[in-house]
Amino acid sequence: MGNDASGGESDADLTQNDGQRFGRLPATADERTVEGRVSREAVVDYFADRFGIPPETFDEYTFWEKGAGKIWIYAGSAPSPIAIEAIGMTCLRTRQEHWKPTTDFVQRFGREAEECVIELEPEEGRAFAAGEDQELERWEGDWGYLIAAHDIAGELEPIGVGLYVHGELRSMVPKGRQREL
């Protein structure tokens, strides 16, 4: 899912990723200059293919990497590379077989999603926000990372990212974000 191994360049020409600086993602894999770095196109395609988030959603944003595979989304202006503490917000982890969006990203952009969204009942939503794993046999869609959402005042609202395997939904809400509601 979502890996970007199709680029034809030889890794010998590429510089190493620098964990101290943010580098802007290349538009496509062919324009890559840093080893292992994914492209903007691959990221936008991933959000579209996995979650049905329309690519235009991201037209006015840039994507950046700091450290291996931690991707950030940014609306402001900055040169690349840039050595600062944070640029916009983290949105995705790419240096593992299955890419994983962040909780805060799905809360911010997940309303646009049309696929791989699992709707939780009130009690299930509370358990999810508290970081609990739960048996949920009813899901018939893809396994892997899903957006967990619930109804709040008549509209569906994304809570965070869950990992669905073997009839179980594991909450990926980070410790510091978990709440007893």
């Binding site: 503490e85 640029i87 917000m89 983290t90 974000r177």
Partner: peptide
């Protein structure tokens, strides 16, 4: 910043 979904922030120290 992340909890509030602010994508226009650049943070420096």
């Amino acid at each position: 910043a992340e909890r509030l979904g602010a994508t226009s922030l650049a943070v420096t120290n």
